[in-house]
C-alpha cells in the first residue's frame, strides 16, 4: 500500500504560508471592503436578469463568460486526465499492466443501497440544476450530484453497463448548447450570452431568461463528464 514519509517540508510550507497570510491580514480591514460592483449588482440583478438567486445571475448573466471558461476548464481537465490515463507509457516494461483487483465484491447492503439511491440522486440533481436561478444550487453542483447518481451503481456492480457513447453525446451537445445559446444572444440581441426569452416574473420556475437553459446545459455537461471520468478511473485501463 502507498505510504509516505512525514511531510516536514510540507509543514514548513504551511507555516510559511500562515506567516504570509498573517502579514497580509494584518493590514486588511475586514468588513468594510469597498463593495462597489457587488452593491451595484445587488441593486439591479433581479430586475435585469429576472433571477431570484443573485449568485446565479452573477454566474450566468453578468459573468457568463467566466462560467463558460470554468466549464471549459473542467472539460480540459477531464480530457487531459483521459489523455494521460489512456496512454500506456513507452518507457515501461511493455506489456499492459493488468489491474489487480484486490477489493472484495460489494455486499448486499451496498448493492441494494445503490439501487435505492439512484433515483433519489437523480431527482435531487435535477432539482438543484433546474432551481439554480431561484435557490442556491445550479449546474455545477447539480451536475456533481448527477455524476454521483450514475457512479454509485458502478461502485456497487462494476459489471453494470454504463453507456459511454450516450454520455459522450450528452456531454458534447450540452457543452455546445451553452456556446450556441451565447451565439444566439449575439445574433438576436447583439451581445454574446445576452439574455433570451425575457426575464419573466422573479421567483417563477420559468423565468430569468436563458439562465435555466444554461444551468441545464452545465448540469448535463458536468454530470456526464464527471461520471465518465470516474467510471474510467474506476474501471479497467483502456488499451
Amino acid at each position: 500500500m502507498l505510504t509516505s514519509r512525514p511531510r516536514w517540508p510540507a509543514l514548513l510550507f504551511i507555516l510559511g504560508l500562515a506567516l504570509l497570510l498573517t502579514a497580509l491580514l494584518r493590514d486588511l480591514h475586514f468588513g468594510n471592503a469597498p463593495m462597489q460592483v457587488g452593491q451595484a449588482i445587488n441593486g439591479v440583478a433581479a430586475h435585469e436578469t429576472g433571477a431570484a438567486n443573485v449568485v446565479a445571475s452573477v454566474l450566468l448573466a453578468y459573468r457568463g463568460l467566466d462560467t463558460l471558461g470554468e466549464l471549459a476548464i473542467l472539460f480540459a481537465a477531464a480530457t487531459g486526465a483521459g489523455l494521460v490515463l489512456g496512454i500506456a507509457f513507452r518507457n515501461g516494461n511493455g506489456e499492459a499492466q493488468a489491474k489487480t483487483n484486490t477489493e472484495p465484491p460489494a455486499g448486499f447492503i451496498l448493492r441494494k443501497g445503490a439501487d435505492l439511491m439512484f433515483p433519489f440522486l437523480l431527482i435531487l440533481g435535477a432539482y438543484v440544476i433546474l432551481h439554480g436561478h431561484l435557490t442556491p444550487g445550479g449546474g455545477f453542483q447539480g451536475g456533481a450530484i448527477l455524476a454521483a447518481a450514475f457512479f454509485v451503481p458502478q461502485l456497487a456492480r462494476p459489471s453494470s453497463p454504463f453507456n459511454e457513447r450516450t454520455a459522450h453525446w450528452v456531454e458534447a451537445l450540452a457543452g455546445a448548447s451553452f456556446v450556441l445559446i451565447g451565439i444566439a444572444g449575439l445574433a438576436g440581441a447583439g451581445w454574446f450570452l445576452a439574455p433570451l426569452l425575457g426575464t419573466g416574473s422573479v421567483g417563477e420556475l420559468l423565468s430569468a431568461g436563458s439562465i435555466p437553459l444554461l444551468q441545464l446545459a452545465i448540469g448535463l455537461k458536468v454530470g456526464s463528464e464527471l461520471a465518465g471520468l470516474m467510471i474510467a478511473l474506476h474501471g479497467p485501463k483502456e488499451t
Binding site: E48, A61, G64
Partner: peptide, 13 residues
C-alpha cells in the same frame, strides 16, 4: 469595447 450579455462594465465582463 465589446460587452458580454449587454451588461456594461464594471458589472459585466
Amino acid at each position: 469595447v465589446v460587452v458580454m450579455g449587454g451588461f456594461a462594465a464594471p458589472l459585466g465582463i
